[in-house]
């Protein structure tokens, strides 16, 4: 993908009195496992350090984008609801997992996987009483996303959140209809969980240098949602499609990131050694450009129909070279 008409990094929205660094809040440099703290995307609160930037992110949206966001939040009120009294007992968790995956595909998901929810997947101000996460991914329309970093691409991101959130709502309603509690989580602006680490452990993809998930089917051109539930399910395993093999040598997102927020080295973040995008550099540009998304669209994996071949090539090359890096499950995520 070739970028055109990229807004400059001069005169981005800024603070007269800078708040605490978002990198510090995110736990950059911390080697102990910790739960994440809210740093952005928390409109219902007014007391978090980056609240001013968060408010301006909404103010700066064109009407079409705001409308998609309002519709989405209204629909997500159906995230949970009454559970049927008669419960379908689950004797074979693997069969139930398969059944729910087929249902998710029927409702419109592209990719789906299942994992267990860990405390580190939740923000530090919430408790969650669910054991399993059914992670769902729906691709964005590439022809719209080629307009990054402009409002048209931002609108497509929000539309896709609506679509993937709708799948999660339908799947959660189905699970509740067979007598098990289930809770649909949508976009990062209103949820209590981190979608990307869960999706990686559920085998949907791996983490890229640009801080987003990369899956074989759609590259990074995908949005996620999650259904949390207690229905007994067989778990999926993290996958290795060779993302690190490419990211280590590829500098496409690093070079195309206008504010230079992407680095070529992994770093310690809350007990994980992983890729990390500099929050303080990324967010002002992200805010000024309706969600930016340059890094996920210039990623070679996001080219349509390229992932499978790219993965095969990288894994063959690795086997030839005889190296077997322990990269499965390595994490990083964006705001």
């Amino acid at each position: 993908m070739k970028l055109h008409d990229t807004p400059s990094t001069e005169n981005l929205p800024t603070y007269r009195t800078p708040p605490i660094s978002g990198n510090q809040i995110n736990g950059l440099g911390i080697k102990e496992k910790n739960r994440p703290k809210r740093v952005f995307h928390a409109l219902w609160r007014t007391d978090f350090p980056w609240a001013g930037m968060n408010a301006f992110f909404i103010m700066n949206n064109p009407w079409e984008l705001l409308w998609e966001a309002l519709k989405y939040r209204w629909n997500m009120r159906r995230s949970t609801g009454p559970v049927a009294r008669q419960r379908v007992e689950v004797n074979a968790p693997n069969e139930m997992a398969q059944q729910l995956k087929e249902k998710a595909k029927e409702f419109g998901t592209g990719i789906v996987g299942i994992t267990e929810i860990m405390p580190e997947d939740l923000y530090d101000d919430v408790e969650l009483n669910y054991r399993y996460a059914i992670c769902i991914g729906v691709p964005m329309r590439r022809e719209e996303m080629l307009h990054v970093p402009h409002a048209r691409a931002g609108q497509e991101v929000q539309r896709c959140y609506g679509e993937v959130g709708g799948v999660a709502i339908e799947l959660a309603e189905y699970i509740r209809s067979i007598g098990w509690p289930a809770y649909a989580y949508g976009d990062p602006r209103s949820t209590d969980i981190l979608q990307i680490p869960l999706a990686i452990r559920a085998g949907l993809g791996q983490l890229g240098k640009h801080g987003s998930i990369i899956c074989k089917e759609y590259g990074s051109n995908v949005r996620l949602s999650t259904v949390a539930t207690n229905i007994p399910l067989a778990l999926d395993k993290p996958i290795d499609i060779g993302v690190d093999d490419l990211c280590i040598g590829c500098r496409r997102c690093t070079m195309d990131c206008p504010p230079n927020a992407i680095t070529d080295k992994k770093q310690w973040v809350r007990g994980e050694y992983r890729w990390y995008v500099d929050f303080d550099k990324c967010v002002p540009y992200f805010t000024a450009t309706y969600g930016c998304a340059i890094c996920i669209e210039v990623c070679p994996w996001s080219e349509p129909d390229r992932g499978t071949k790219l993965s095969q090539m990288l894994l063959v090359k690795r086997n030839k070279n005889g190296s077997s890096p322990d990269r499965v499950g390595s994490l990083t995520y964006r705001v």
Partner: peptide, 23 residues
Amino acid sequence: RTEFQRCRASNEPFYVDRFAPPG
């Protein structure tokens, strides 16, 4: 929004300290 675009065009800083989410 208009002020932000003006600041971008005229090389002036644009501060977000004064804004607060609806809460």
